[in-house]
Each structure stands twice: as structure tokens, then as C-alpha cells.
Design a protein around this nucleic acid. Structure first.
Lengths: 146, 146
DNA sequence: ATGTTGTTGCAAATGATTCTCAATAACAAG
DNA sequence: CTTGTTATTGAGAATCATTTGCAACAACAT
């Protein structure tokens, strides 16, 4: 059994919730996609397997609470998630011009954030950093056309 | 004329847009509130002055593009903004238990982020950092009740 | 003053997410 | 491996923040 599945099962048991066929499929879908996904892309991924979109929406918070998935960013009025197994956390860079999303490591920021957390006795669960601006490709195009 | 108003006017002119009564009122409302606000709270703030909610929604992106306001966080399915005049940027700490939002400075992170930006030739426009977890008040209550 | 063009309020539309409910599936216990 | 208990499901309706269409109106350049 995959690491993520047993982690999910463990979480569900701790909450007296059930490990169902639909939930397994949603979990698998989430880990089969190696980019940001929203509820609809998960649903699309398991289309034909008789799992309703409502169930995908209902499963997403469970995956978050289980520490398997986290909200990555909001784009075009929709929530996008990413799975986290042991993945280093990362920054998200959003280009306001082309809407592309880039990622970089955030390792070096963690100690600083943990320090701040400590001083106000805050227990960190997830860290989410978004930087909006213009990426080099778009900056380049702007210059080209001037 | 307030600094924010002339900045807004400057932006509008650069885009051949008009400085209207409604837009002025929305701007004033945004700067009169010293906490996070959503479209509805702005509308509420200028209730009776005959500015429609749709216009508030239409003005918000303009204020963002003018660099006067930025999206601060999403809560309860709504977007919350904050004004920025010369304000130091800050981190947002969201308590998952009581839903309170705390803020702290982020000064020391800026050079690191600018460095990362430079190395990938990204032009930073806005920085948004959210940390979710449990605040000390809720942590305390949890312990009390155990 | 006046024409041109952007803007507004209003109401209807949109679209992601949530909810309702009767039917069904997990799973613990015998 | 049956059965009872309780959580879960699919389907579709309901919500609710945000967006849009449109005809009347207001900014502002000339």
C-alpha cells in the first residue's frame, strides 16, 4: 500500500471516518497529477469511475486535514491544490501577464518563519507564499515590442 | 488632495480612464477602513451614497492595478483586501480554529525574496504570505480542556 | 457648450462550491 | 459471513460571491 494511502487511512480512522472506494480514487487522482489541480481536474481524471464531483469536493478537505494535500493558489476564481508527500515546500510565482505559475524552493525562509511563529506561540500547519508580478518571458516581450 | 487620490488619478489618466464620483468614494472607503475589507464592507461603508455593489467590484481591480490596494487573503469564500500606501508589507497568520487573522512584519524576508526574483528575472509586484495553523489562544483552550 | 467615450445602476447571469436526501456501502461485533 | 449502526454517496437543487449586458448618464477634451 502506498505511503499516502496508509497516511490517509490513519487519518480517517482517527476521525472514525471510512475509507471508501470514492475516497481512494480521489486520493489516487491527486497523486497521479504532477501539477496543480482543482476539483474539476481530479474529477476529470477519474471520469467514468462513477465518482461525483460533489464527492471530490467533499474529499478535498479530508486530504488537507490528513496533511496529504494543500491549497496552492487561487486562479480564475478556482482553488488549486498540490499534493505533499515529503516534498519540500515552495514559493509560487504568478505572472500577471501570462498567468503562468512558477515554483521555487523556500527552504531558507523556513527558519525565519518558525522563529516568528515561536515568538507569538503560533503552531504552523501550512505555509503559502505567492508572489505576483511579471515573469522574464513577458518582460522580454514587452521590451521587444517597444 | 490625498496622496492616494492623486496616485489613483495618475493611474486612471495613464489608462485613459475617468476619475468618477463613485470611484473616489470607493477609494475613500478603502482607506477609511483600517482592517481587511471585502467588496461588501466597502459598499456598506458608502451606503446611501448611491454607489452600486457592481461598481465597487469594478473599482477594486483598478485600485489594485494602481498599486493602492492588494488582495490580502481569502476567507469564507470571499476575497479580502488591504490598502497599501507606504505600509510595510506583512505576513498573515490564519488560525484554523478560531478563524482569526494576525499580522506581523515581513521586512527580513524581503531581501531573500528579491534575490530569488533576481535570479529568475521576475519583477515582483506584490508579495502575499499566509501561514495557517493554530494560534496560542486556541492552543491554550485545547490544553485546558484535555 | 458639445460630442465622444467611458461609466453607472440595475437586474439577470455565471460558476464554483455546498447542501439535501433517499439509497447504499463500511465496518464492528457477534 | 450476517447484521445493525452510522457514515457516505450521487444527483440535482441551492448558495452566494463575482461578473456582465444594457440603456441612461457623466467625464472630460476641444
Amino acid at each position: 500500500m502506498s505511503e499516502q494511502l496508509s497516511k490517509f487511512q490513519e487519518y480517517l480512522q482517527s476521525q472514525r471516518l471510512k475509507l471508501t472506494r470514492s475516497r481512494k480514487l480521489v486520493l489516487e487522482a491527486a497523486f497521479s497529477l504532477h501539477e496543480h489541480f482543482d476539483a474539476e481536474s481530479l474529477h476529470e481524471r477519474i471520469k467514468g469511475l462513477n465518482v461525483s464531483l460533489a464527492t471530490v469536493y467533499r474529499t478535498l478537505p479530508l486530504l488537507q486535514e490528513a496533511g496529504l494535500v494543500q491549497l496552492a493558489l487561487r486562479k480564475d476564481g478556482r482553488d488549486f491544490f498540490e499534493h505533499i508527500l515529503g516534498h519540500p515546500k515552495h514559493l509560487h510565482w504568478l505572472c500577471e501577464s501570462c498567468q503562468r505559475v512558477y515554483e521555487t524552493e523556500l527552504e531558507e525562509l523556513i527558519p525565519i518563519l518558525e522563529n516568528k511563529a515561536k515568538s507569538q506561540r503560533f503552531t504552523i500547519n501550512t505555509i503559502n507564499i505567492h508572489i505576483s508580478g511579471i515573469c522574464w518571458k513577458c518582460r522580454k516581450n514587452e521590451n521587444d515590442s517597444q
